[in-house]
């Protein structure tokens, strides 16, 4: 999928440049694009490393467990097929917590564990059940406490207060997540 998108981006650029006479600009963009990619990575790597380091401490002091417990009642409502304290609910709570804390590396294995638990009680192994769909929909909506990546980008481009969009992001995430959950519930039958 991405391969096709990427390929088309390049083909369209060269064709469009040939038609509009902008080949010189595109030629320069090849070089400057690759260079600016590395500049972006350099500006990202420091904050990303710092933040994952802080979050490692957060995990060790029990923030993850605390949040997972906090989410447990909500999750049992959203996943009525599983009881409170069941392995599926536990894995779901850990996945959601990892996402909230921005621990992408930890969230995916937890999420796969949750899917495997839900797959166990699935009648048809190839068709998703309601809980699996609900879980994936929650994962496709971002619910991140500190949107690190976007703040780094804003700072790189000279934002006066890189973090000032955080409340706006939280609100928008909540709206998107609610719409996702409601749509999933509506389409269940």
């Amino acid at each position: 999928m991405l391969g096709v998108v990427w390929g088309f981006m390049i083909i369209i650029s060269v064709l469009c440049a040939a038609l509009t006479g902008r080949m010189e600009a595109v030629s320069n963009a090849v070089l400057s694009g690759a260079t600016s990619a590395v500049e972006l990575l350099i500006s990202m790597v420091g904050v990303m490393a710092l933040w994952t380091g802080i979050m490692k401490i957060a995990d060790a002091i029990g923030v993850t467990k605390f949040l997972a417990n906090l989410f447990s009642p909500i999750m049992t409502k959203l996943f009525p097929d599983y009881e409170k304290g069941s392995p599926a609910i536990k894995a779901i709570c850990m996945n959601v917590t990892a996402n909230v804390l921005g621990l992408g590396n930890a969230a995916t294995p937890m999420g796969i564990a949750a899917m495997k638990e839900m797959s166990r009680s699935n009648k048809n192994k190839f068709i998703a059940n309601n809980s699996m769909v609900m879980f994936v929909v929650i994962n496709t909506a971002s619910i991140q406490l500190v949107p690190t990546m976007i703040s780094i980008l804003r700072q790189k481009h000279g934002a006066a207060f890189p973090f000032d969009v955080m409340p706006a992001i939280w609100l928008t995430s909540c709206v998107a997540l609610t719409v996702g959950i409601l749509t999933a519930k509506l389409l269940e039958k």
Partner: peptide, 20 residues
């Protein structure tokens, strides 16, 4: 996530996720 457990039919996952 669906790939990890071999689900072929994702049912209403894509419409709901895109609505979000």
């Amino acid at each position: 996530y669906f790939g990890a457990v071999g689900i072929k039919n994702t049912r209403h996952a894509i419409p709901a996720a895109l609505a979000a």
